[in-house]
Design a protein around this nucleic acid. Structure first.
Length: 301
DNA sequence: ACCCAGGATGTAA
DNA sequence: TTACATCATGGG
């Protein structure tokens, strides 16, 4: 049991933990107040969040001056990576185009950061995301962890905020590869069940190695990712943006498409690839960040 | 009852 | 290449 704090002054630019974790980029953290992901929280409110990193429990909350953590290991490098604390958000936000919808999103949610989460859990999360609401995706991922994930005992020092005695890691590729389609359907995954099993099998066989994809040019990487079953252009963009370190992707979901129709109509070129390229041009040097701000802003209305 | 959700796949033109 | 039906499921 270790604990500590990361001074917000040591982070380049603002941080908003709750918005970052609950804005639908990651489904791998749970709130210790028992709520599932919900709509944005009032800033300044202090909530504990928990995830399992490999075999370690990591709890974190935000106070006025710091990100406080407690964990079975040193959580600092984990938080720095997964919350992208190294990103100079002041610089990123300064380069946002002067489109009103973007500027308003930045004004409303300064401190919203992109995440950099583990590959396989992110892949499965966004395979499940097809035609589902953010809240339900989080619920499904939580059920997968509970039903198939390795149980991790939570140390005494981590139970102060009403946490459970056991946390669950996201299941390994091999485990989901061996899961039965029907069992997964019964959990509520619907027609996505075979996608999960087949893609998990591919990951277990290292059919499309993520470390190789990281090295590819963005659009090439997106094409490779669509080799997974249940992964089209949109889900591939999410996986690249939220777990493989790419900063260009602008996942064209229903919210972003409606934003394009309303605010950037000339960027609608019909096909995914052409529209994607056109909207990236309009969103400045950090399209991925711009997209995340617009997505969360529209969804919070 | 209808419509929507961080869409993908298979098939037909 | 693009167009369209189909795919589960829960919540508004």
């Amino acid at each position: 049991m270790e604990s500590g704090a990361i001074d917000v002054e040591s982070i380049p630019g603002p941080v908003d933990l709750s918005t970052t974790l609950e804005s639908g980029q990651t489904f791998l953290w749970c709130r210790l107040d028992g709520e599932t992901y919900s709509q944005p929280v009032r800033s300044g409110e202090s909530r504990w969040y928990r995830t399992v990193h490999h075999r370690d429990v990591v709890d974190v909350r935000q106070t006025d001056s710091a990100l406080e953590w407690r964990s079975t290991t040193d959580a600092v490098p984990i938080l720095e990576e997964r919350l992208r604390l190294g990103d100079d958000l002041d610089r990123v936000l300064a380069t946002m185009p002067s489109e009103p919808v973007l500027q308003e999103a930045v004004r409303r949610f300064p401190g919203l950061r992109l995440v950099d989460e583990p590959f396989f859990p992110t892949l499965v999360s966004f395979i499940l995301s097809a035609q589902m609401h953010v809240k339900r995706i989080h619920g499904l991922v939580s059920v997968l962890r509970r039903e198939y994930g390795n149980p991790i005992p939570v140390p005494d020092g981590c139970r102060g905020a009403g946490g459970d005695e056991t946390a669950y890691a996201f299941p390994d590729p091999q485990t989901l590869a061996e899961a039965s389609e029907e069992a997964l359907r019964d959990l509520g995954t619907g027609y996505r069940a075979p996608y999960v099993v087949e893609s998990a099998t591919m990951v277990a066989n290292d059919a499309v190695p993520p470390d190789t994809i990281r090295e590819l040019p963005y659009e090439e990487a997106r094409d490779r990712l669509t080799e997974f079953v249940g992964v089209g252009d949109k889900v591939a963009d999410c996986v690249l943006l939220f777990s493989l370190g790419a900063m260009e992707p602008v996942p064209l979901d229903t919210w972003i498409r409606s934003a394009i129709a309303e605010h950037f109509p000339s960027a609608d070129r019909g096909s995914y690839g052409e529209t994607s390229a056109a909207i990236r041009e309009r969103l400045g040097p950090n399209p991925g960040y711009a997209q995340t701000y617009v997505f969360h802003y529209l969804r919070s209305q």
